[in-house]
Design a protein around this nucleic acid. Sequence first.
DNA 1: TAGCCTTTGAAGAAT
DNA 2: ATTCTTCAAAGGCTA
Length: 439
Amino acid sequence: MKWPLLDVPGTAALKDSRSPTPGHLSNKVPVVQHPHHVHPLTPLITYSNEHFSPGTPPSHLSPDILDPKTGIPRTPHPSELSPYYPLSPGAVGQIPHPLGWLVPQQSQHMYSIPPGGFRHPYPALAMNPSMSSLVSSRFSPHMVPHPPHSLHQTGIPHPAIVSPAIKQEPGGDNASNPTHGKSSVPAKKEEERKPHIKKPLNAFMLYMKEMRAKVVAECTLKESAAINQILGRRWHSLSREEQAKYYDLARKERQLHSQLYPGWSARDNYGKRKKRKRENKPDSAPESFSPQHKKQCMSYLPSEKMCDSPTSSHGSMLDSPATPSAALASPAAPAATHSEQAQPLSLTTKPEGRAHHPHFPLPGRASGSSSSASTPSPSSHPSISLHSQSAALLSRPIPFTSLPPSLLSPSSPFHQAALHSHHALLQTQPLSLVTKPVE
DNA sequence: TAGCCTTTGAAGAAT
DNA sequence: ATTCTTCAAAGGCTA
């Protein structure tokens, strides 16, 4: 099922991402509508900080680098060495932080605006008539409008595009390329010429990108694995509204991404990375962890406990956004009856594999399925499967999208019951730790 | 030095 | 229809 697209004014045209119609996009994408508005995703769609590093521009941003595809020399522009929006210096000062509501404190240093201004992260989108005012005078000639289908070959430094030279697999990616071999030389060449278009970031990734620096600063930690654990917990501690913001951003980004790369599929990136080494897991029982995994988990726990102060534990996982609209329609009352400590590291209870979060059928593909609301799959989450009673209490993640707004009201019996069940579940969560072998 | 770790979510593949 | 797998960010760590 798909994320139930919001009827957010201005996004309707994006709903059909496969048939981008510049004319439609014009006045329906509020994020780029106003000439002085910065794309709300600005700091989040960087995809890679490589594109930001003013001091050490990646090779593909090097001025004297020719586009591997077109051979067109990249026009060096100061703004390319740092953030995205090619706004004039005079306009920079007018830029409200696109995520001011997200990063009230750290926005200044996290997204400092360089002298060169921003570079629009989605130049192609900027090329439609309505956006032309935004970019017409800010892009160098080679960034002049191109049909979406040719974007990959223009050398436009879209943050989602990573030069093959950077992202390329060691050894020519042969190992993971099913078409490798003598007979696939053309295919290989073709593959090499293709820029690596990264996946759009999901809500949590956006959140991580946003909050990582803060957590790092707070905890003086740098290991991403540890940071991510903390962020994962904090993510769950966010209120529905707070998460909804990120879901909304992620949705918009997906829409923009699909607008820019109509032919792109997540499958395109399959095999781009080296295969993970989790193959050694199958031989172990679900509840048995490899020593390495154990060690990793345990080693990260103390750090997290020390750092992860429940500064934002007013949310509930039940309050996670089914849809932003739902969240906004009925913002969850701060159900701060549990703290993060009350949910000790459920992440460590994940034996292996990935499972969709059972608590909330977030507006993904499952939400469109009516059966998803009636056929719970608690086993999809290890911690749930370990607590059938809790799972029964929770009885099942009913898609909020399928519920009438009245039930979504914090004061509604359903809401209260759900919270009660949720809290009951949380109280059982510590048990899940027991299931984790302690060395 | 390539890949792992760790998180959640999206999307595609597989069952 | 459901489950599983891969990738997205990121930086220290490890083989």
